[in-house]
């Protein structure tokens, strides 16, 4: 079970909320302060990408963010509701006029995530695409 789970409407204004929550939970889980900026950025990129996929595909479902404290890792999963969209190719199939630019932005987002996160998996589940990322946590997490 996720430590914290978020579901938000696929709107750009909610991506900041997801970033802030993810960073707060990561800090509590014991992720090193020096890495929190990377967590914030990577989650933001994954959520922005999911929002873009939903909007281009005309999907009303919420974007799902799972934050999971494990023994030695802090895991984040960002799930979209676009089946088969495991990469930027979903953008290239979009039919609106700005599809090319959107797809380029999605590709840049993935480039940033790839550059930031060592443990990264871009796959899918029964709902759609899932970006899984994890970071090491300190042995002794921050106490309340």
């Amino acid at each position: 079970m996720a430590t914290v789970e978020l579901r938000f409407s696929a709107l750009p204004e909610h991506v900041r909320t997801a970033r802030l929550v993810a960073a707060a939970v990561a800090r509590r889980a014991g992720v090193d302060e020096s890495v929190l900026d990377e967590v914030r950025l990577a989650v933001g990129e994954a959520c922005s990408r999911a929002v873009g996929l939903h909007r281009r595909s005309g999907i009303d479902d919420a974007v799902r963010v799972k934050l999971v404290e494990q023994e030695k890792r802090f895991l984040i999963e960002v799930g979209d509701g676009v089946p088969g969209a495991t990469g930027a190719e979903a953008g290239s199939h979009a039919i609106d006029g700005s599809a090319g630019e959107d797809a380029a932005e999605a590709a840049m987002g993935l480039a940033v995530i790839s550059g930031l996160v060592d443990d990264l998996d871009i796959g899918s589940d029964e709902n759609g695409g899932v970006v899984r990322m994890s970071w090491p946590v300190a042995v002794h997490p921050v106490l309340p």
């Binding site: 970033r19 914030r40 950025l41 933001g44 990129e45 922005s48 630019e101 380029a104 932005e105 840049m108 987002g109 480039a111 940033v112």
Partner: peptide, 9 residues
């Protein structure tokens, strides 16, 4: 304070 790939674009 914060810049992402959309900003880079």
């Amino acid at each position: 304070d914060f810049l992402d790939s959309t900003g880079l674009g």
